[in-house]
Design a binder for these strands. Structure first.
Lengths: 336, 336
DNA sequence: ATGATCTGTGACACCGGTGTCATAATGTCA
DNA sequence: TGACATTATGACACCGGTGTCACAGATCAT
């Protein structure tokens, strides 16, 4: 099976390869007759242009890379699906690259990524969207990037985030308004800026409602189910037992629910539980988790949209957006 | 900031670009002194070779594409992580491409994928690994591919699967040995070959233990949580109520558990529930689900390993493997 | 010393497209 | 009808690497 190149098409159609290229790219200034003729030869020879050659000539790969280091599978798939939507809209493709934030290896790792596959741009998801070191490196290397859910201020680059602090405030307020005053909190992974923001929203709600903050009610988690299970043990052993728990994400909240159930506690009658993210698990378990829905797909979609625009050379005027998070109440919270 | 190419390096180092290329690729026949000199210039100019140009010259992209159409996020992330492991080992990268099996659009979609980004190979996950139409197309186009969890026989191409039929047999047998004889079954998505195989394992276990198969105990699902919830309704309304339910995956099993709990049924005392896949949710809920663990990462890793070998030109002698599935018992199953 | 082999290096074509520019053919307007 | 703008087309360089081959000089066996 012989390879069909632009040259064979040109020869076969009796035109120059430049004309074939024109037809390929829908450029103007090709007579209808010629265009027709070339298109027919495309079919006849079953010609597929070589994207690599095209990429070399145009200095583009039409591939966006997506960086992440996140224990939540559902978060990752939501990020991917938002990114893919934007990519496909512009005929781009998505390459995924999970890697670890920690360690000196990061920059070397990204350098290697850039070396082995030329990417037109990079989407940074937490915690990379907050890594000043990485951002510095990308700027130096002149790599286009967009930040998702980043808390960094002052960087002019593309950034789409949602309001974590406000979301945490609202869900805490929801618990307070139900009548809870002894509300435990489980923090997320320290590398993620969302961790600080959610914690801060929790504290602001307390103080807004004149409740005193008690750090004995705070457990350290890292967004993983496992860390939630550990925190749950600590929290359920507090005396007197908190009447409500707000975990920084749904996996950790699910862990609390599981342990509470194992200990014969009724949820929400004996203890209310709230999460964050509206992960699938929040509605897959019983009782369903009250949580905050973030538009993860939408954030990523917008970020990639802006990124591709930037690659194309058009600078959007609005490059930093904050989307709303929304309270979703389910069965896991009630009056104490 | 001027672009640094192989030419600038060559000029700067006072050698030919071919020699630079030799150093770049660790080829022999470069004197230590020259090599040293060129390496120094690499550092000085901060040179990064252009993978696209290299790809054009070598006719390689060093990118593998991963095709899927699967409602289970955890399955997808497991597939991705196995594929990535193998890719990175060989300095390949992974491009993801979810798309729909159904519809005439499939072939056009893949054709477009191949057109917009030249891939060295494709990993097909269910249900694509069973699509004869797609496989036919890839063969015609001379595209390297590897099948994961495919049930197609007779195709010589790379295939790594696990034993679904046997897994389903074992978990059903587990229920039977606990004393259940009235065991409901929820089928998976009809496009997936696993669906047929798991069903068949269920039936074989029944007949092996001299239980009569009753199709009124079988509900149609499609692997999604939602379909599991629908099936759960039907099954829990059967009179007399089955003493056990075996769902073709964990999401559907979780849906059964949720509905049962909502209806004040005790699991496993009132009804035993078993799933398949050992998805994270199986251990995130209470009671934990008895299920079958499949080595999804391992399957994909092996498949991609073989695929990359094949791309490299070395044909492994063993190209079709079947891995073991393993019964994991948790709290959701017990004596009736 | 002589021919044979090995080592290090560069010239040059090539991968398969796109961009620039020249030029011929055609259309437009006074 | 002549001057000028527009359209259609191709020649050719170029993108940034790799493969082939020629060849000079060093090494080796006889």
């Amino acid at each position: 099976m012989k390879k069909v190149t632009i040259n064979s098409v040109a020869t076969y159609a009796g035109v120059s390869k430049k004309t074939v290229s024109r037809v390929l790219n829908n450029e103007p200034n090709v007579s209808p007759a010629t265009r027709e003729k070339v298109l027919k030869v495309f079919k006849e020879l079953d010609y597929t242009p070589n994207p690599i050659a095209r990429g070399l000539a145009r200095n583009r790969s039409f591939i966006i890379g997506c960086l992440y280091d996140n224990p939540s599978k559902s978060y990752i798939t939501r990020v991917q699906s938002g990114a893919l939507e934007a990519c496909h809209k512009h005929n781009y493709n998505l390459l995924i690259h999970p890697c670890e934030l920690r360690g000196d290896a990061l920059i070397a790792n990204i350098e290697n990524l850039l070396m082995t596959s030329r990417l037109d741009g990079l989407v940074l998801t937490p915690p990379f969207s907050d890594s000043l070191e990485l951002i510095e490196f990308l700027k130096k290397k002149n790599v286009n990037y967009a930040r998702v859910a980043s808390a960094i201020e002052g960087d002019e680059s593309i950034s789409v985030r949602s309001n974590d602090e406000q979301g945490a405030f609202e869900i805490t307020e929801h618990l307070i308004e139900l009548g809870h005053s002894h509300i435990a909190f489980i923090k997320g992974h320290p590398d993620h800026s969302a961790t600080e923001q959610r914690f801060s929203g929790y504290q602001r709600a307390l103080s807004t409602h004149n409740l005193t903050f008690d750090d004995k009610l705070v457990a350290e988690g890292n967004f993983s189910y496992h860390s939630g299970a550990d925190s749950a043990k600590a929290i359920l052993d507090i005396n007197p037992r908190p009447s409500a728990v707000f975990a920084s994400n749904d996996y950790m909240a699910a862990a609390v629910l599981k342990l509470a159930t194992q200990r014969q506690l009724k949820v929400p009658e004996d203890i209310s539980i709230a999460g964050f993210d509206n992960a699938p698990i929040a509605r897959h378990i019983w009782p369903g988790l009250t949580t905050i829905a973030q538009p993860v797909e939408e954030m990523t979609r917008q970020a990639v949209d802006l990124l591709i625009e930037q690659i194309g050379g058009t600078q959007a005027q609005v490059r930093q957006t904050t989307l709303e998070a929304k309270l979703i109440t389910r069965e896991s919270t009630s009056k104490p």
